[in-house]
Design a binder for these strands. Structure first.
Length: 463
RNA sequence: GGCGGGUUGGCGGAGAGGUUACGCACCGGAUUGCAAAUCCGUGAAGACCGGUUCGAUUCCGGUACCCGCCUCCA
């Protein structure tokens, strides 16, 4: 069996991945707060952990992996959106979840096994908060329930900080009722205009971090294998999750492997809502980029390094995918290449896997005599281990029938061969090239293939 | 201020203490009416300064620059 190795943020080293239970490998990834379209930065962890999900299923079996990713549907940003639009909160979150699914589906991401909504786990959160209070890790004050960071000596272990260090440079506005400036909210009161639930501490709503602890516990148990998310969640979100879960369930251990993906950047700066330098996945899809191209670009940099979106990279990705799709047309997937799987198993070395894919492609094209049916099947299955070349990935312009144009070009060419006047041929050829069609003319005849930048609209004018 | 990460050829981007990463682009050749595509082939790197070593882009230390977190954030 392939040994998966993962860089664990807690140890800051690559470790052999040993699941608690190979028959039920469990992964939790922090999902979106559903108040708006997902931007490209939001898509990176989705795609990265989708590859890990596929790899885990490949190694342990499809029915032996549980992947949970939450929807945060209770949050002040959602409340603000409701207030400014006058819309019902549930209709906002439902609509946003629909968008999220559509956009992430377009990127070829498999739906997680579980997609819990925070609002459906309020009771679990209340139970967990109560337990934390009982165990002396949380306290109620001024209608709030706060986590007492001083009660958990390991606080800061994941992010490599001490409570004292953090206080020194803290930019947080410290609420006067906090015992320690780093204490964070588990429960806060809601006035009648805000969504709220009855609790032992009055009508209120949960703080941000408790939902992931509660849902991970409910769905995956007190101890599970992998917890993932963007690097910006490492502190404070994941640190707080660890504090909550480890204090509520001492000795269970919570998540054993912590994975963090680096950020998507725009001109050297993190893509984020607060900087306003973001664009949505939907924007790119509407510009005509196939979701698979977006996926390819996101995967072409290792997940622990920053990456960015550029038109040049997208064009390169599109050209490569067109080539690969043409190569395996009509092939049926067999099993993925072992070397490629090994590369992915090495902390998701997608670049290494891509290099292997290039080598496999070269081996196929170097043997044009054979149809390489088996090799193509391996190639296809290998690509699909990364979620590429899946059937039905939307976004590729449906290829119209180019045969009539090919015939016309062929006839013009035959005439030109006789008359030595190639102007009409060149004119049609130039028009085809302008429409993104690759024109291949040889002694064998004329072949037209949609290429990078293919534009069916421009083709219409030629008819 | 505290903590963490990065700097590879024209561009993107990996692994490995010594042997071609890979892809794109470029250049040369085959091919073509000209091209395109394809095939073959040649170049091109490791921010800077020290150290360890027979040998470092790879390990260690320092410098410079960049980025992230410490505030909602993937």
């Amino acid at each position: 069996m392939v040994t998966i190795r993962l860089h664990n943020s807690i140890s800051r080293t690559k470790e052999d991945f040993v699941p608690l239970d190979p028959a039920n490998v469990r992964m939790y990834v922090c999902g979106p707060t559903v108040y708006d379209r997902a931007h490209l930065g939001n898509a990176r962890p989705v795609v990265v952990f989708d590859v890990l999900f596929r790899l885990l299923r490949h190694v342990y079996g499809e029915s032996h992996v549980t992947y949970a990713r939450n929807f945060t549907d209770v949050d002040d940003k959602i409340n603000a959106r409701a207030a400014e639009t006058g819309r019902d909160i549930r209709s906002i979150t439902d609509e946003t979840i629909g968008w999220y699914h559509a956009d992430m589906d377009a990127l070829g991401a498999l739906r997680p096994t579980q997609e819990p909504r925070a609002t459906e786990f309020i009771n679990a959160m209340i139970a967990m908060i109560s337990a934390l209070i009982d165990k002396g890790h949380a306290y109620e004050v001024a209608g709030h329930v706060l986590f007492d960071v001083r009660s958990y000596p390991a606080y800061g272990r994941l992010s490599g900080r001490s409570v004292d260090d953090m206080i020194a440079g803290a930019r947080v506005e410290v609420a006067p009722y906090k015992r320690d400036p780093m204490d964070f909210v588990l429960w806060k009161p809601s006035d009648p205009s805000l969504p709220g639930w009855e609790s032992p501490w009055g009508r209120g709503r949960p703080g941000w971090h408790i939902e992931c602890s509660a849902m991970a516990y409910e769905l995956l148990g007190a101890a599970f294998d992998i917890h993932g998310g963007g690097l910006d969640l490492q502190f404070p979100h994941h640190e707080n999750e660890i504090a909550q879960s480890c204090c509520a369930f001492p000795d269970a251990g919570f998540a054993r492997y912590w994975l963090h993906n680096e950020m998507v950047q725009v001109e050297g700066k993190k893509m984020s809502k607060s900087l306003g330098n973001f664009f949505t996945v939907r924007d790119l899809l509407e510009q005509g980029w196939p979701g698979e191209v977006i996926r390819f670009v996101l995967l072409s940099t290792h997940y622990r390094k920053p990456t960015d979106w550029t038109e040049e990279r997208a064009r390169e990705a599109e050209a490569m995918l067109r080539q690969w799709r043409a190569l395996v047309e009509g092939a049926e997937p067999t099993g993925p290449d072992a070397e490629l799987a090994e590369a992915l198993a090495d902390d998701l070395n997608v670049a290494g896997a891509m290099a292997r894919l290039h080598a496999l492609a070269k081996a196929i094209t170097a043997n044009p005599q054979k149809d390489c049916f088996y090799e193509k099947g391996v190639f296809l299955a290998s690509a699909r281990l990364m979620g590429l070349l899946e059937p039905g990935m939307g976004g590729w312009t449906a290829a119209p029938d180019l045969a009539p144009l090919a015939t016309r070009l062929s006839e013009l060419r035959a005439t030109a061969m006789a008359t030595k006047d190639f102007a009409p041929v060149d004119a049609l050829k130039a028009a085809l090239v302008a429409a993104g069609v690759e024109v291949r003319m040889s002694k064998a005849g004329v072949e037209l293939v949609p290429a990078q930048g293919f534009d069916a609209g421009k083709l219409e004018a030629l008819k």
